[in-house]
Amino acid sequence: MATPKISIIGNGNVGSALEKGAKSAGYEVRSTGADPKDVRAAGAWGDVIILAVPASARQDAIQNLGEIRGKTVVDVTNLMNPDWSYGGDIKRSGAEQVQEWAAGARVVKAFNTVFAPNMATGKVKGEALSLLAAGDDAAAKKQVLDLGKAMGFDPVDAGPLSNARYLEALGFLNIQLGFGPTQYGTDIGFKVVGRGK
């Protein structure tokens, strides 16, 4: 099976880190900012489309992508309010919203529990972080887990897309650990241990 082409929408810290990691892993990658024509071109070109945009920009990005039925869309966003409180909902995740907007696409939630400085290698202090990926389409989820493994992550199937609501809460906890009262910084991360291979 051919290695999927990776389109990254968003060229900030997260998008740039994922681009570096995917290229280092041998993937063909294109990235773009918010220009609608560039976003549409990236959507047409890529097999896997990574939304590395602010949560508030997700719906516009989906609209600008155009026809993406059958393509894998990876939502890496975390929902936060302007005051840095949790903006998500454990009854309905942001990724499930993306799936509604991107009818016919195969949405996977992943990378949101990892700080951008650790995304390119999937590691902290030489130890592989878990890449937790939730999605309803097994083939799409495998594409994302394979990408993560090639980048250096320990890939972990986190179940159906409905579990994205818990990954988003975990992503928020990661931010709180890094920048909240504990001030652990970004050189931290999560790993699932003890599971069967």
Results as ranks from 00 to 15, higher is better:
Pro160Cys: 09
Ile68Asp: 00
Ser56Thr: 14
Gly135Leu: 03
Ala133Gly: 05
Ala61Asp: 05
Ala110Gly: 08
Pro4Ala: 05
Tyr86Pro: 01
Gln99Ser: 14
Glu168Tyr: 08
Ser56Met: 14
Gly135Ile: 11
Leu161Tyr: 11
Asp35Pro: 07
Thr72Met: 01
Lys109Glu: 05
Val108Cys: 09
Leu18Asp: 00
Gly10Asp: 02
Arg195Val: 09
Leu145Ser: 04
Val144Cys: 07
Val193Tyr: 14
Ala169Gln: 08
Ala169Gly: 12
Val53Glu: 10
Tyr166Cys: 07
Gly178Glu: 03
Ala34Ile: 09
Leu167Asp: 06
Val124Trp: 04
Leu167Trp: 07
Gln63Arg: 15
Gly122Leu: 12
Gly87Met: 13
Ala102Asp: 07
Leu79Ile: 11
Trp84Pro: 09
Ala2Lys: 12
Ser24Tyr: 05
Gly33Asp: 09
Arg58Asp: 07
Arg106Gly: 02
Glu19Tyr: 04
Asn11Ile: 02
Asp83Arg: 02
Met1Ala: 14
Asn78Cys: 04
Ala169Glu: 05
Val29Phe: 06
Ile68Trp: 00
Gly46Ile: 14
Gly70Arg: 06
Gly180Tyr: 06
Val144Gly: 00
Asn81His: 11
Val98Ser: 03
Arg30Gly: 03
Leu18His: 01
Asp137Ala: 01
Ile8Gln: 00
Ala61Tyr: 08
Leu161Pro: 03
Gly194Gln: 04
Pro36Asp: 12
Gly178Cys: 11
Gln143Asp: 10
Asp38Ala: 09
Ala169His: 10
Asn118Phe: 09
Leu132Ser: 00
Phe111Ser: 01
Ala139Ile: 09
Pro4Leu: 12
Gly122Lys: 01
Thr77Glu: 05
Arg92Ala: 12
Glu19Pro: 02
Lys141Pro: 06
Lys71Met: 09
Phe179Leu: 12
Gln63Ile: 13
Lys141Asn: 00
Thr77Pro: 04
Gly26Asp: 01
Pro54Tyr: 14
Ile6Met: 02
Asp35Phe: 10
Val48Met: 01
Leu167Thr: 01
Ala140Glu: 07
Gly33Ala: 04
Ile50His: 02
Gly87His: 06
Trp101Glu: 10
Ile188Phe: 03
Ile6Phe: 02
Ile90Val: 15
Val76Leu: 11
Asp157Pro: 02
Asp60Pro: 13
Gln176His: 12
Val124Ile: 06
Ser31Pro: 11
Gly152Leu: 11
Leu170Tyr: 12
Gln63Tyr: 14
Gly33His: 05
Leu167Val: 02
Ala44Arg: 15
Ala42Trp: 08
Ala44His: 09
Ala34Asp: 15
Gly15Met: 04
Ser130Asp: 01
Ala22Asn: 02
Val73Arg: 01
Phe111Pro: 01
Gly46His: 08
Lys149Ser: 11
Asp154Lys: 15
Gly15Asp: 10
Glu19Ile: 13
Val53Phe: 04
Ile9Asp: 02
Phe153Asp: 00
Lys141Leu: 08
Ala44Gly: 14
Ala150Cys: 14
Ala52Glu: 05
Gly26His: 05
Ala34Lys: 15
Gly33Leu: 03
Lys109Gln: 03
Lys141Gly: 00
Ala133Phe: 02
Ala44Ile: 13
Ala2Tyr: 07
Met80Trp: 15
Ile175Phe: 09
Met80His: 14
Asp137Pro: 00
Gly94Cys: 08
Ile175Cys: 08
Tyr27Trp: 00
Met1Leu: 12
Val48Ile: 10
Asp38Arg: 15
Val29Thr: 02
Gly171Asn: 06
Leu177Val: 05
Leu131Phe: 04
Asp38Cys: 07
Leu131Tyr: 05
Ala164Glu: 06
Arg30Tyr: 12
Ser162Val: 12
